[in-house]
């Protein structure tokens, strides 16, 4: 295996055209796979010192996050703390300090795990990814970029340059809950992230995304359509959880069974609607 460190996007784009070249960001997914023998790159292209990929830029039309920004740096940014609390909550629960000091959002996206927590938050904020090659750039919705386990829209030689999150509603109330076997360092068995805006007791806008229950983090459009324009009450909680159970397509694996995951998602969606709407009459917390 060869190793090449690049320090500019020009060098990076050229290096990625080499046969068998693999992009190396924080290495927290890549090195685990290499150790397990699941991946044997011919050439590792280390892009961690390409400064243009590590910037965050807070602009009136939204926040640009370099694909190579370390998650601890993303978490420390004022814009993320102030305007994107769901992203902050999600990243806070991702791995550990040690992992977040290396890991990047570009890696979380390109690794394309159904459990990728960062991806879930980016989808909830309607994020877009800018993909680049030697010859140009294109932009895709995050939800189009992740196709399934380890499958993305990346073409040969292409890399993720940045992630764009549009300026959020100021009245979004965030919710994130991940069910795992323990608190730290947990790969989600099932997770729900959401944003909710309410006026006069009625839901006026909502986003719900579920993790680990479909080939990629999944926006639960049927749930969103069902609850918008309605007040949060017991009936709504019951129908929304039922819609969530139906919308997901979980699998059985070593961590949990499919029916269990389906039930957890139903409960988490109810909990989201209850907590984010400040509703208290829906029964005991799951």
């Amino acid at each position: 295996m060869d190793y090449l460190r690049v320090t500019s996007e020009v060098e990076l784009a050229a290096a990625l055209r080499e046969d068998g070249a693999v992009f190396l960001a924080g290495g927290t997914d890549l090195l685990v796979k290499m150790r397990a023998g699941a991946l044997r790159p011919r050439l590792l292209v280390d892009a961690a010192r390409v400064d243009s990929l590590r910037q965050l830029s807070d602009r009136p039309d939204g926040l640009w996050i370099g694909s190579g920004a370390r998650l601890e740096d993303v978490l420390a940014s004022d814009a993320v703390r102030r305007d994107y609390p769901l992203l902050a909550a999600v990243l806070h629960s991702l791995g550990s300090v040690q992992i977040r000091n290396r890991a990047t959002l570009g890696g979380n996206l390109a690794n394309a795990s159904p459990a990728a927590d960062g991806v879930l938050a980016l989808i909830a904020y309607d994020g877009k990814v800018a993909l680049a090659t030697q010859t140009g750039e294109r932009t895709l919705d995050v939800s189009e970029f992740v196709r399934g386990p380890r499958r993305t829209a990346l073409a040969a030689g292409e890399y993720i340059r940045s992630i764009w999150l549009p300026a959020p509603r100021s009245d979004w109330v965030p919710f994130f809950h991940k069910v795992g076997r323990r608190q730290a360092l947990t790969i989600a068995i099932a997770s729900v992230g959401g944003l909710l805006a309410e006026r006069d007791g009625v839901i006026v806008d909502v986003r719900v995304v579920a993790g680990s229950v479909a080939p990629a983090p999944l926006r639960l459009h049927p749930v969103e359509d069902l609850v918008v324009g309605r007040p949060v009450d017991r009936t709504l909680l019951a129908t929304a959880s039922e819609a969530a159970r139906k919308a997901v397509a979980p699998i059985d694996d070593v961590r949990a069974s499919a029916p269990y995951r389906r039930d957890v998602i139903g409960d988490l969606v109810a909990r989201f609607l209850r907590q984010a709407s400040g509703h208290t009459a829906g029964g005991a917390s799951p």
Binding site: Y3, R5, L24, G27, T28, L31, V32, L44, D46, A48, E72, V97, Q98, I99, N101, R102
Partner: peptide
């Protein structure tokens, strides 16, 4: 765990060239 440029990281997940 070691500190790399002052930050704690897992040295099992860092390649020496990095």
């Amino acid at each position: 765990t070691i500190l790399l440029n002052g930050r704690p990281v897992n040295s099992c997940l860092v390649l020496a060239p990095q």
